[in-house]
Design a protein around this nucleic acid. Structure first.
Lengths: 149, 149
DNA sequence: TATAATGGTTCCAACGATGGGAAGGTCAAG
DNA sequence: CTTGACCTTCCCATCGTTGGAACCATTATA
């Protein structure tokens, strides 16, 4: 089947399917006589696996790992679980960071009248001469995934 | 003062200060006779403002808006609050998305023995033929900020 | 059958924010 | 005057994804 059909069937855009092939996440697809990529149901199944993993926020390299474990009949479930737990920790830390930002912002927003007057505790906080550290997390690893519609 | 000093004083790297100048977030710095950028205490104060806003997860365009409100003596605090509340909603939605992922992953990880045996509910879920939708959020706007180390 | 409308192909660029590094000029101390 | 630390500009990489241009293949319609 054509890449467009495989894209609809898997929920991964044709663009991304080509990209995944390019970076080696999936093997190069078969080609028809005219050069079109040709996908089997098995290929689509793999693409669905990838999409599901992406929806759960796994990075491409993690998906690579998961795919190879999936294909390995002699895998140890411990290896899969390790990848999952690591990702869970990653999510946990990013969530904590954002929640910390949110708490601070909510406090500031609550203190702000939000009317026509110029006085504003939010700007007041941002302009703190000391460069305040407050409660908002400052340093943390970058986000993974993110569908960026 | 030199860019290096301003960088240390503000907590923003020299690289990023040049970048912010390039994209117009901050005006072009004065130059010494030899071409070095020259910063005043006021400039550093602005940089600190920017850093604090970034630590709270505001995007560059939001910071642009906040900076212009900060400089506007006739601003209305309602405008500032609107920016903040919008960002809070953004954070809230991203957190919800990640929490949904985490919940799903934790359930799967709990169900996985994590030993030497190959049977694995995590892979089982990812390989669902239907392309499952489950509870994990699939679509959401891209993350802002993110200190990336 | 001629032609138009899809849909495939490749390649290049952009996003957002940041870091890395090369090549070369400047400054201050020894 | 040399050395080392700092500055300058410019380009590249990250990560996942989308967009577009230019061009070829297939299909459907007039």
């Amino acid at each position: 089947m054509n890449i467009g059909i495989a894209a609809k069937a898997s929920g991964i855009s044709a663009k991304m399917i080509r990209y995944y092939e390019q970076i080696g996440l999936i093997p190069a697809a078969d080609r028809t006589a005219s050069g079109y990529r040709d996908y089997s149901d098995t290929d689509v199944h793999t693409l669905c696996f990838i999409r599901r993993a992406r929806d759960l926020g796994f990075s491409v390299s993690e998906i690579e790992e998961l795919l190879s474990l999936w294909r390995d009949r002699d895998r140890q479930s411990g290896d899969v679980k390790r990848v999952a737990l690591q990702h869970i920790e990653e999510l946990r830390s990013r969530i904590a960071e954002m929640e910390s930002m949110m708490t601070t912002l909510e406090t500031l927003a609550d203190a702000c009248a939000g009317d026509h007057r110029p006085d504003c505790p939010i700007l007041g906080d941002l302009a703190q001469p000391g460069g305040r550290n407050s409660s908002a997390a400052a340093k943390a690893p970058p986000p993974r995934n993110s569908p960026s519609v």
